[in-house]
Design a binder for these strands. Sequence first.
DNA 1: CGGCAAAATTGTTCTAGATCAAATTTGCTC
DNA 2: GAGCAAATTTGATCTAGAACAATTTTGCCG
Lengths: 223, 223
Amino acid sequence: MLVRTSAVCARPPAGMLSALAGGQIFSSEFRYRRGEEVFGEGEEAQYVYQILSGAARTYKLLPDGCRQINSFHLSGDMFGLENGASHRFTADAVVETNVSIMKRVSLLDAMTRYRTGPGSLLSLVTRNLVHAETHMLLLGRKTALEKVAAFLLEMDERLTHPAVLTLPMSRRDIADYLGVALETVSRTLSILKDEGLLQFYGPTQRRVVLLDREGLARLEAQG
Amino acid sequence: MLVRTSAVCARPPAGMLSALAGGQIFSSEFRYRRGEEVFGEGEEAQYVYQILSGAARTYKLLPDGCRQINSFHLSGDMFGLENGASHRFTADAVVETNVSIMKRVSLLDAMTRYRTGPGSLLSLVTRNLVHAETHMLLLGRKTALEKVAAFLLEMDERLTHPAVLTLPMSRRDIADYLGVALETVSRTLSILKDEGLLQFYGPTQRRVVLLDREGLARLEAQG
DNA sequence: CGGCAAAATTGTTCTAGATCAAATTTGCTC
DNA sequence: GAGCAAATTTGATCTAGAACAATTTTGCCG
C-alpha cells in the first residue's frame, strides 16, 4: 500500500467525504494495486474510504469459495462506512486505485452537524439499501440477458453516459456481481454485439459503446 | 380493512413502535384479511405498521408478473417506514393479520429523541440493509437445497426455535422469496423430510418440526 | 518486438431447476 | 359431512445456464 499522506488536501477531490472534511478533518491518500485488499470482512471498521481514481469491489465469500460481489465503487464513491463496529464485506481494488481515507469517528462527528441532510449517515445507508433491494430483484428473478443489460445500463448511468463506456472490471467480476458464470457474461455480450445493441471499442473488450440504450432498457425490463 | 381504533392502547403490545408511542403517540389497530394489500409500491409512505398477529410480505413485481418477495414480517416486526417519501415495495397480508398503525411523522418526531439508540431510524434501516445483503448472497450463489435450509433456519430463529414451526406463508410465497419455482420448494422439503432432517406436524404441511438444526445449518453453509 | 501469462471467446456437454401435467391433500363453505 | 377450489405433491420433460475444454486475444514484460 503506497502512502501519500496529505493531512488536509490542498485541492479537495469531489464528493461528500472531502466536502465534509472541508479542511477540518485529516484525510490521507492511499494507493492500492489491482487485487490488493482494502479491508476484510469482520475487521474493525476504523476507516472510511472514497475513490479518487480507479475502482473497488465489496464482496462476501461462501465457504466453497463462491464470491458474491455486492457492489462496485467508482470515482467519487464512498465505501466502508458501517453503522456497526465491523466490516460486513471484504473490499479490494479492481484496478490500480487511489483512495482518500479518513477516520470513521472523525467523519461521524462531522456528520452529526448535518444530521438530516442528504449527506447524513442515514441517507448513505438508505442509498445502499435501495441498491441492495434492486439487486435482489435482479439476482432472484432475472435471466442472464436481463442481468447483463441491467449491468451495462447501471454502469452507463453511474459514469454519466460516456460515449465509450470503460469497464474497470473483468468478466469474472461482472459474473460474480450478477450471479452467473463468467462464460455466460462473455456469451451474452457477444449476443448483444451481434444484435447491434453495442460494440467494442479499440483493442480491448472492456471498452464498450452502447448503440441502443432504449433496446437494452427493453431487454432489462423483461427478456 | 376492519378498523378498531384505539387512540392510545390500554395495554401496549410488545415492540418498539408502541414502546416509542409510550402513551404519547396515537396508534390505531387495523385488521387485514389474507391477501389484502396494506400499501402499494410508489404510494406515499404516510403510515408505519407493526404486526400484532399474523404476517405480511413486502415485494416487487417485474413487468412480466414475476414477484420477488423482499421479506416476511412476523409478530412484533415493524415495516413500511421509509426514509424517502414513498414506498419502495408493495405490502400485503399473508394471512389474517392485525397491525398497529401510526403516522410516520409522529414516529419520526418521537425518534429524534432517541437518535443514537438501537431504536433509531438508522438502526432500523441498517437492520434492513444487513438482511438484504445476506439475501443477495443467498439469491446469487446458493442452490435450491441451501436456500430452503436457510429459509427454515431463518424462520426458526425469528420465531425463537419453537418445537413446531408454523409457517404462515404458502409454497409460492417461499418460492418467490428464495427465487426458485414453487415445485422446487415442495420437492426440496420432501427430500429434507425423507432424509430425516424435518417432519411435518399434523394434517397441514405448514407445520414443520426441525429434527436436525445442525444438519440444516451444514446444508445451508454449502450444499 | 517476442514471449507469456492472464483474460476473453467460443464450442460441447451436462445438469439443476424450470416448466408442463396430473394426482392428492387440505381447508372452506354451505 | 359433502362438495369444491386452492394448495401441495409428485412425475415427466425441457432448457437456460453451468461446467468442462480448447482456442484466441490482450496486455505486459524484458
